[in-house]
Design a protein around this nucleic acid. Structure first.
Length: 555
RNA sequence: GCCUCGGUAACUCAGUCUGGAUAGAGUGUCAGCCUUCUAAGCUGAAAGUCGCAGGUUCGAAUCCUGUCCGGGGCACCA
């Protein structure tokens, strides 16, 4: 359709086709037509006002392929045959691979959420996981092979802090609650202790040294507490529907990478200071100098990340590697990628998927002080809300209630976390953030269930579609459906799931308008509407799937 | 100080990449709609100096410059 318009304008104006394509736009209002060509650009060439040009063009272009062409001020508006359009869209949307971008066939590693193992996961991790999972799903949709991996930050001073508090107050107790929460309580406890008595800071440092010298008692406690935390994480991942293909542990790799640095030194990529420490000069990249090996020869954090990048390359032979990590580490990744580039790595294939913090009305979340929105508690709370809603409308057996409330609550949380542009900080107001009405996950699920409900009630009839008069909301729905591929393209380009989230909502909203204005069963356009509903279900299910959200046939 | 990301309705956010017609949603407020496919819904109303000031352009929320406010970063921490 668009090609036709381009050709006609080309014939009439001699503008080159690519330029015309760029100029053509979709008018803001339905009554202004389906496509518009703004004529401002021609006013110099023809030495006439754009308004007159639009009128002239209208006379010149007389194509039977359009319903009508109108000049509206400086715009030339094209009205295309709606019946043909809707038929075309239906055909397209019902193809199996609608929206897919094929033959990419790349291997992609996605790393998330890489938690510290001294406290349970919080809302920030949920945002991380929602984004990580969605990016993975989108990559898979583009026909890539995706490996989800996780790097556990299971050593270091923060771990020792929880350990100190446990030694002091734990009395060798075993967890009497979800085990990662049990460990996290000691982390909070430590920070209370340190406020009163600064020597605890030193004690933690000493414990870290003991740990590094492989002191048996320390290692055993560390193993025990880490296991508790990791067990807890496993349960949270499961509840949030996250699975990893591989887990890495910082404790196993933190000393590695030394050889890479020494080789780099030999090749002159890195430099040595007088005190013996090795650093990289990134002044050219405006990133300053970065130490890679301490003067005593030990590795720093970035050293292991250099090693891990190489290890991942060896193990997965990836074409692309995504790091889903908060925006406070943007500098770290800039430095990391620059170093890897110097080492001959194809750094273009590495990408930090940066996202903003989740803030509370009172400000930043602080695990240290315990004022965080805990991941498990939140999931449970929202689940309760969903159950209450369900119980108020319908009687269900326990299993079905569990299954539905589970999907609804996860949809609510994931949609809430994904609908906001990943790079932006977002606000979580516990009192009002997660309701089930309006721009929410449950609203979208509801529209899907309604669509299903229609299809359940139809009797099978002849499939031939005869379109009588089209209702504006039928056209609107069809047009919205047809946008799916470009949304996918944009999402993949920006690696930002928010585009799909917003599209899903708009699609659901458009469907609900259609639902109210266009009864399906026994209507004049019944067969057409059935096909529209089918397409809607298909496209919405795909969209939600890309957000890691499961649909419900009934709600 | 330097780097970076934000600032759009009372609140939470789209729209900025790729400039275009009357700047859109949701929440909240107010007013309607359930003997008809699920009211977690729909319709309507009120609500906006698009932080501010310049510039580019026929045209700027969108591009450029400056500036103010807020977040984050600039470790031989992780």
């Amino acid at each position: 359709m668009k090609e036709l318009i381009i050709n006609e304008i080309h014939k009439a104006t001699k503008l080159n086709k690519k330029e015309i394509e760029k100029l053509i736009e979709i008018p803001p209002l339905e009554k202004m037509g389906d496509y518009a060509f703004p004529c401002f650009i021609l006013s110099k060439q023809f030495k006439k006002s754009p308004k007159l040009i639009a009128e002239d063009l209208k006379k010149k272009i007389k194509s039977k392929d359009f319903e009508k062409i109108e000049s509206d001020g400086p715009y030339l508006n094209f009205f295309i045959n709606k019946k043909k359009l809707v038929e075309k869209i239906l055909k397209k949307t019902q193809k199996k691979d609608f929206g897919k971008i094929k033959n990419k066939n790349k291997k992609i590693v996605v790393e998330f959420p890489s938690p510290n193992t001294n406290k349970p996961l919080h809302l920030g991790h949920l945002r991380n996981m929602a984004i990580g999972e969605s990016i993975s799903k989108i990559s898979e949709f583009i026909d890539n092979k995706v490996y989800r991996i996780n790097l556990n930050n299971d050593r270091g001073i923060h771990i020792c802090k929880s350990m100190i508090a446990y030694k002091e107050f734990g009395k060798n107790k075993k967890p009497n609650k979800k085990s990662d929460h049990f460990v996290g309580d000691f982390y909070v406890k430590f920070n209370e202790l340190v406020k009163k008595d600064k020597t605890y800071e030193t004690k933690a440092q000493e414990l870290l040294q003991k740990w590094e010298s492989r002191d048996k008692e320390t290692i055993n406690l560390w193993k025990k507490m880490n296991m508790w935390t990791l067990d807890g994480f496993k349960e949270t991942y499961k509840n949030f529907n996250i699975k990893h293909d591989k887990e890495y542990f910082e404790s196993k790799i933190y000393k590695k990478g030394k050889k890479i640095i020494l080789d780099g030194l030999k090749k002159g990529i890195f430099e040595k200071k007088e005190d013996g420490s090795i650093f990289v000069n990134l002044e050219k990249e405006k990133l300053g100098e970065k130490i890679l090996l301490r003067k005593d020869g030990t590795a720093v954090y970035i050293t292991q990340d250099i090693y891990l990048a190489k290890l991942k390359q060896k193990e997965f032979k990836f074409d692309k590697s995504f790091y889903v990590v908060g925006n406070e580490q943007e500098y770290h990744f800039k430095v990391l990628f620059s170093i890897l580039k110097k080492l001959g790595f194809n750094a273009k294939n590495l990408k930090h998927i940066s996202y903003g913090m989740v803030e509370l009305p009172e400000g930043k979340m602080k695990s240290r002080e315990g004022n965080v929105v805990d991941a498990d508690n939140l999931i449970e709370e929202i689940n309760k809300m969903a159950k209450k809603e369900l119980n108020s409308r319908i009687k269900l057996n326990k299993k079905e209630l569990e299954s539905r409330s589970n999907k609804i609550s996860l949809a609510a949380i994931k949609y809430f976390l994904l609908k906001i542009d990943a790079k932006k900080n977002m606000l979580f107001n516990p009192k009002e953030s997660l309701n089930f009405e309006g721009d929410t996950g449950p609203y979208i699920l509801y529209s899907y269930a309604r669509a299903n409900s229609i299809l359940k009630k139809i009797k099978i009839k002849n499939k031939q579609i005869k379109i009588k008069n089209l209702h504006p909301n039928e056209i609107k729905l069809a047009k919205k459906l047809s946008l799916f591929p470009e949304i996918i393209l944009r999402t993949y380009k920006d690696l930002n799931p928010a585009h799909i989230a917003n599209y899903s909502y708009q699609l659901a909203q458009t469907f609900n308008e259609f639902y109210h204005s266009c009864p399906v069963i026994n209507s004049e356009n019944e067969n057409l509407r059935i096909e529209l509903v089918k397409s809607f279900k298909k496209v919405l299910k795909n969209s939600l799937n890309l957000l890691g959200i499961e649909t419900l046939e009934e709600m």
